[in-house]
Design a protein around this nucleic acid. Structure first.
Lengths: 148, 148
DNA sequence: TTGCGTGCAAAGCCTTTGCAACGGT
DNA sequence: ACCGTTGCAAAGGCTTTGCACGCAA
């Protein structure tokens, strides 16, 4: 499957560039690749720590920082102190979250094209929106509730 | 000026509702009103503490929470652990945050009109975006760096 | 062997909380 | 005088850092 090949590809890239592949680093890469979307440093640590209690959380943070600097994973700040990571190969996307039923809808990055243009034209601001979470009400909930 | 009347209006509202107006609470309200836009809890504390060293930061946090619950101020999560407050009377707006120089640019809610339309048309999703923080690079940083 | 990476412990930030004393009304 | 508020201190959650040992290459 795609996630496994992502993982092997990343490990291979690191090895080719002469980076040391330690068991800890390998586990972090595996877990991030296996994750279905975002995952936090704490979740990665819990996962590793369950099998290898000697592994320290500082190693997880250092590995994530290293992978991020290498451009192999991306970090998103979800607000409220929540920082999550995911592999960088996924197409850029964002999430709509329905506040009624909790549904999460993945939307393509292109929905932001217009907004980016406006910000550049009006403010000269180059928006770098890596991950956006938009709350609201989904279609079925609107129809069920009869709300606009 | 507007800020002063905001301040007096809030104090008056609090007093009318029977809330106790302590010097600490008064100072917090004054500082938030006097701030040009958003201000962080730490900045408020520094301001108060400079003149009244006995005032504790926990009082600042408690007062801000109280004012927020009363709907008199709003809190925005700028990401990276930065939370800022401002008086609630201001028109709906959003923030552009420059990741190079830290500048914060206030933009009107209308910049999201297009995005809201797209989400409604393509996904039937009614976006309820109360406050959006968009990271990126501001005009002057782009010009200084020569980046696009 | 060599020096990069790790575990450990401690600290750094920001924010919250328990508790006894204080002070608005 | 009452009881809501405050100051203090401590803790809590997450992340970072200094240091000496250990291990990948």
């Amino acid at each position: 499957m795609q996630r496994e090949s992502d993982c092997e590809r990343i490990i291979g890239t690191l090895r080719e560039h002469g980076f040391r592949i330690t068991p800890q680093r390998r586990r972090v890469v595996e877990i991030v690749c296996a994750a279905d979307g975002h995952i936090s440093a704490g979740e990665i640590y819990d996962d590793i720590h369950a099998r290898n209690p000697q592994v320290n959380i500082s190693t997880v943070y250092r590995t994530l920082e290293w992978l991020e600097n290498l451009g192999l994973i991306t970090r998103s700040d979800l607000g409220e102190g929540r920082e999550v990571y995911e592999i960088a190969t996924r197409g850029k996307h964002h999430h709509l979250v329905c506040d009624r039923c909790g549904a999460i809808i993945e939307v393509d990055d292109s929905i932001l094209d217009g907004l980016r243009e406006i910000l550049m034209e009006k403010y000269g601001f180059r928006a770098e929106i890596t991950h956006l979470v938009i709350h609201g009400v989904c279609k079925s909930c609107r129809e069920n509730d009869g709300s606009p």
